[in-house]
Design a protein around this nucleic acid. Structure first.
Lengths: 109, 109
DNA sequence: TTGACATGACACCAGATGGTGTCATACAAT
DNA sequence: ATTGTATGACACCATCTGGTGTCATGTCAA
């Protein structure tokens, strides 16, 4: 099974607020065509379509044609990369972890 | 005169691979001046400095002047926003959660 | 068949982004 | 006092980004 699309960075795909709203909208519905997504935004249809293309390139969205419309569906699994990345840094804001870290550093001395 | 530009979106600040490397480097050291960060990258000092400015605008980095150098320190807590955001979507890739979701949907019918 | 609808593919544009180089200044070292 | 270092502040530039509008094609409905 090959993901035939381009290799867009997930962090990059998610950096745009419009695209995060698209992800949210798609998470709340099984499948949505472009013309049902567009009215949620102030921009035109073309702009929304471009954002969906970027999400597709990051593997965050899959589409299938049904009649004259193209329905978009969320594929959240690429977000794991972000979760893994951010999980590493929890130690730097969790106070418990900070205390543990300090203890470890004291032991090393 | 000194306007504080804390308006920068954390998702945006983190979208750039260079800035993610900066965050990683700063997480591995207490405090680092610009001239110790720069040699880790292929770009010039000015470019690295710009990236640090963006991280500062997102609140991810704090700096303090020590002699003629400016030392940068990681402040990871704004990353909580990303963790909170991505946590919502774990239900869409966890297979257990997917199964639970299907059961709930069946009950609704 | 005709006409409205949904979409993709473009061309186009302003502003943001991510680099460069240069210069002035503050501090350190000798 | 002089020289070298670290930095910030710019000016500058190419490319990317996020929007626009238009047109052609395929599909549904009357």
């Amino acid at each position: 099974m090959s993901e035939n699309n381009e290799n867009r960075d997930v962090f990059d795909a998610v950096a745009d607020p419009t695209r995060r709203r698209l992800i949210r909208l798609l998470s709340e519905a099984e499948e949505l065509p472009l013309h049902e997504l567009t009215p949620h935004f102030q921009m035109g249809r073309t702009a929304v379509s471009k954002h969906l293309t970027i999400l597709k390139e990051a593997g965050l969205v899959v589409d299938r044609k049904v009649g004259r419309e193209t329905r978009f569906r969320l594929n959240a699994s690429p977000l794991q990369e972000i979760q893994d990345w951010v999980a590493y840094y929890t130690q730097f804001w969790s106070t418990n972890m900070l205390r543990l870290k300090q203890l470890l550093e004291e032991e090393e001395e």
